[in-house]
Write a protein that binds this DNA or RNA. Sequence first.
DNA 1: AAACTAACTGCAAGTAGCTTGCAATTAGTC
DNA 2: GACTAATTGCAAGCTACTTGCAGTTAGTTT
Lengths: 131, 131
Amino acid sequence: MQIKELLQEKKIKATKPRYKIASVLAQSSAPMSLDEIENVCDDIDFSSIYRTIKLFLQKGMVTEHYFGEKKAKYHFHNESNHNHFIKCLKCGKLEEIKNVCIIDEVNKKTAFKIIDHYMEFTGLCPDCSKN
Amino acid sequence: MQIKELLQEKKIKATKPRYKIASVLAQSSAPMSLDEIENVCDDIDFSSIYRTIKLFLQKGMVTEHYFGEKKAKYHFHNESNHNHFIKCLKCGKLEEIKNVCIIDEVNKKTAFKIIDHYMEFTGLCPDCSKN
DNA sequence: AAACTAACTGCAAGTAGCTTGCAATTAGTC
DNA sequence: GACTAATTGCAAGCTACTTGCAGTTAGTTT
């Protein structure tokens, strides 16, 4: 789906900053922090990036994660992307894990009504486990 | 295991602040933030709590988590505790999920060598899903 | 297509949650 | 009980957001 149509669908006024931030996030396979977005969009003020991301979060366009760090990272949300990542202890690389589903098992173990979930795995990527 | 013996085993000088912080964490089933610890240990300076927690982290006595928040929470680590939590969207209550294991499945899906993992589920606890 | 206006942006100042330097204090050894 | 290296409290500093406000802009109305 094109960014323009997505913003229309979500009833978000399509300003230049929003268009650019959405494009950058949509094209990044790895979750990005606010200042990583700022580095790419150096013509946009940090506070505007911050407010745009908050808006995208409310609209369900991005998800927010803390990969064992105090800095939040944001990931463009779509059907094919299920928000399970694995992070390399050595180089910090984040990679998505697809088709892993544990919801049914968790549902059996708890009386909570599960609405969302998030998993984080840490290890060594193939390159780092060699050396 | 007694706190005193644990500190000895980890070769940590058993000062009063450390003893108290370890006791508080060991007795709490829910992960605690630094200022939640400070509220209970109001005679201990915040910076000492901070440094003690960093030490406990290095020694593998506690684990650090961000439950979709920018504030870190710390959880006493032991064999019976496997670090999978579920958080109520409405009241924020955190509850531990036991005996959920997905590591084998993730191992099949990725070339990473998995060293640690962490899962977070969000939903409504039984009380909150009633109202 | 120019005027209108409600929403958005940049700038600057403010806050929360950590993080560190240093002098006074203390646990564990001698 | 004296010694000393490690730990603590205090205060200052830093990082990552967060907010108020006046100028600007997208989308509608004329």
